[in-house]
Write a protein that binds this DNA or RNA. Structure first.
Length: 470
RNA sequence: GCCCCUGUGGCGCAGUCCGGUUAGCGCAGUGGACUUUUAAUCCAUUGGUCCUGGGUUCGAAUCCCAGCGGGGGCACCA
C-alpha cells in the first residue's frame, strides 16, 4: 500500500470498551441501527470464503469485526490484511448469532501496515528480553503488561491529587547537580561543554527541596527521576522514580501518619481494600502501621540487646555470629544498621515503621530528642523491602557542617558513596531552616507492591539493558 | 564483580541428560476450499549461521573451553 493512501487523520467515534459498555446487553443476532467508527490493530482474522471475522484491539480491549463479502467494500483486500495492521472501520454495531458483539465492516481503511510478523497470536511473547526491548510489541500481546502501566499512571495521578489536596505544591529542581547529595550512592557524571563544568545526575532531589523550604515554600513535593550508578536487580533500576516531600513545622511522626494514610488511600482506591495480596500472601496496609525501633527489632529477632554503648568487640562478634560482614571502619551505628538489614528487614512482611536510626549513618537527620547518638529517622518497610525513608530534618547548620565533614572523611577513607560538603546548602541553612519533616518514597517499588509484581522491570516501561547490537 | 540457569526459522516450543541420516511441531507467511467464526477449520507449502569462536570426535544443536546476550541469586544499593 502506497504511503499516500494512508489518511493524515482519522476520527474514531467509539472504543471497544465503550461499545461493550453500551451494547453488551443486546440480543444475539440483532442489529442496533447505530453506526460507529473504531480504530486499532487487527489481531485475529478468520476468513471463510464470502464471510470474514476479525478481532480489532484498541487501547480499551478487543472487539469483533463482522465482514460479509456482500457488505464490505474491497472484500478480498480486507481478507488480505496482515495481523498487526492498524485499520479504521465504520459500520453498524451488532451481535452475531453466537452472541459476539461486533462491528459490521461497511467501510474500512488502512492506518498502518505491519511490515513485521506479529508474535504468536495465542502465546504472545515469553522471552523477557524481547518484552523489555520491544515494549511496543509487549504492550499489544501481553495484557498484564499494559494493565500494570495503566495502573502506574493512575497511582501517580492519585498521589498528586492527594498531596495537592493537602496543600503540597509540586516543584521541579535540577537534575544536573554540581555536587551529588541527599543520598549515599554513586552518581552518573556528565559534562556541560559551554560551562566546561562537570555535573552529576541527581541521586536525590533532597537538598534542593530543603532549599525551597528555607525559601518559604512550606509544603513541597517533587515526583521525578533520580539516577544511581549502582547494580541492576529485580529491585533496582539505574534510573528510577522518587517522590520526595517536605513539610515545614512537621516532625517524623507527622510523616509516619502521612505515609500510612497515603498508602492506605491508594490501596483502597486501587483494590477497594487495605488488605491486598502480594506474591501470593495477604498483607494488611490499614493504618496505623506498627512502629518499632531498630534496636528493639534486632532484639526481637535475634534475642540480643545492642546499643551504641555496647563494646565494639561484642557488636562485631554479634554481627559475625549472624553472618553479617563487618569492616574495621564501621562504627557502632553502622554495625547496628548492618545487623538490622541482614537479620531483620527481609522478614518484615506487614508494614512497619522502623525508627531511630544511628546518627552515624544518617547525615541529614536531626538528633533524636531523647536518644543520644540516634536520629529521628524511619524507614517504612513492607514485604521485606524499604519503601520509604523519612526524618525530622536536621536544621542546625553547624551540626550539618560537622556531619558533612564526617562524610568527607569517610569518602577519603574510600567510601565512594559518602557525601561531600555542600557549601550552598549550608548557607541556606544558615539563613534558617524551620523544623521540617521530609520523606522519600520509591515509586517503582510502591507500584510493584500495589500491582503485585515481583520485578522492577515490569513496572518500568523501558528498563535499563545493555544496548542491543544491530 | 562472583555464582547458577539459559540462548533452536518472525513468535511459542520439542530435540541436548545418554553425540549418529535431509533438525521436528504449532502459530504467523504463501497457494487452495469455506457465509456465523471465537487461538476458526481442512488440504498443500516457503522459511533454520541450532548465539559466536575455538576444541574433542569418523561424526556436534547435543560433550568441553572461551566470549556475547538474557534471566535468577549473592555482593553492591545506608
Amino acid at each position: 500500500m502506497p504511503e499516500t493512501a494512508i489518511p493524515y487523520r482519522f476520527e474514531p467515534t467509539a472504543t471497544s470498551g465503550q461499545l461493550r459498555a453500551d451494547f453488551d446487553s443486546i440480543d444475539d443476532g440483532t442489529e442496533t441501527g447505530k453506526t460507529v467508527t473504531i480504530a486499532g490493530r487487527l489481531m485475529l482474522r478468520r476468513v471463510q470464503g464470502k464471510l470474514a471475522f476479525g478481532t480489532l484491539q484498541d487501547s480499551a480491549g478487543r472487539i469483533q469485526l463482522f465482514a460479509p463479502g456482500k457488505v464490505t467494500p474491497d472484500f478480498a483486500d480486507f481478507c488480505e490484511l496482515s495481523l498487526g495492521d492498524w485499520i479504521g472501520v465504520t459500520g453498524e454495531v451488532m451481535k452475531t448469532r453466537k452472541g459476539e458483539l461486533s462491528v459490521k465492516v461497511e467501510q474500512w481503511t488502512v492506518l498502518a501496515k505491519a511490515q513485521r510478523p506479529f508474535p504468536d497470536k495465542f502465546h504472545g511473547l515469553s522471552d523477557a528480553e524481547i518484552r523489555y526491548r520491544q515494549r511496543y510489541m509487549d504492550l499489544w500481546v501481553t495484557p498484564e503488561s499494559r494493565e500494570v502501566f495503566v495502573l502506574r499512571s493512575k497511582i501517580v495521578s492519585l498521589i498528586r491529587r492527594w498531596l495537592e489536596d493537602r496543600d503540597f505544591m509540586e516543584v521541579e529542581t535540577p537534575i544536573f547537580h554540581p555536587i551529588p547529595g541527599g543520598a549515599a550512592a554513586r552518581p552518573f557524571a556528565t559534562h556541560h561543554n559551554a560551562l566546561d563544568q562537570e555535573f552529576f545526575l541527581r541521586i536525590a532531589p533532597e537538598l534542593y527541596l530543603k532549599r525551597l523550604t528555607a525559601g518559604g515554600f512550606e509544603r513541597v513535593f517533587e515526583l521525578g527521576r533520580v539516577f544511581r550508578n549502582e547494580g541492576i536487580s529485580t529491585r533496582h533500576n539505574p534510573e528510577f522514580t522518587m517522590l520526595e516531600l517536605y513539610q515545614a513545622y512537621a516532625d517524623y511522626t507527622d510523616i509516619m501518619t502521612l505515609v500510612e494514610e497515603l498508602i492506605a488511600y491508594l490501596a483502597t482506591e486501587i483494590h477497594g481494600s487495605t488488605t491486598i495480596t502480594y506474591d501470593g500472601k495477604e498483607m494488611d496496609l490499614s493504618s496505623p502501621w506498627r512502629r518499632a525501633s531498630m534496636v528493639d527489632l534486632i532484639e526481637e529477632k535475634i534475642g540480643v540487646s545492642v546499643s551504641l554503648e555496647t563494646e565494639m568487640d561484642d557488636l562485631r562478634k554479634t554481627c559475625r555470629d549472624h553472618g553479617v560482614e563487618v569492616k574495621d571502619s564501621y562504627g557502632p551505628g553502622k554495625l547496628i544498621l548492618e545487623l538490622y538489614e541482614k537479620t531483620v528487614e527481609g522478614d518484615l512482611w506487614n508494614p512497619v515503621f522502623v525508627t531511630d536510626y544511628p546518627k552515624e549513618v544518617s547525615p541529614l537527620s536531626r538528633d533524636h530528642r531523647e536518644l543520644p547518638g540516634f536520629t529521628e529517622r524511619f524507614e517504612a518497610v513492607v514485604a521485606g523491602r524499604e519503601l520509604a525513608n523519612a526524618f525530622s530534618e536536621l536544621i542546625d547548620p553547624d551540626e550539618q557542617r560537622a556531619r558533612f565533614e564526617d562524610q568527607a572523611k569517610q569518602k577519603e577513607e574510600g567510601d565512594d558513596e559518602a557525601m561531600v560538603v555542600d557549601e550552598d546548602y549550608l548557607r541556606a541553612m544558615e539563613y534558617g531552616l524551620p523544623p521540617t519533616g521530609g520523606l522519600g518514597i520509591g515509586i517503582d517499588r510502591l507500584i510493584m507492591l500495589l500491582a503485585d509484581v515481583q520485578t522492577i522491570r515490569d513496572v518500568v516501561l523501558f528498563p535499563t539493558l545493555r544496548p542491543e547490537q544491530f
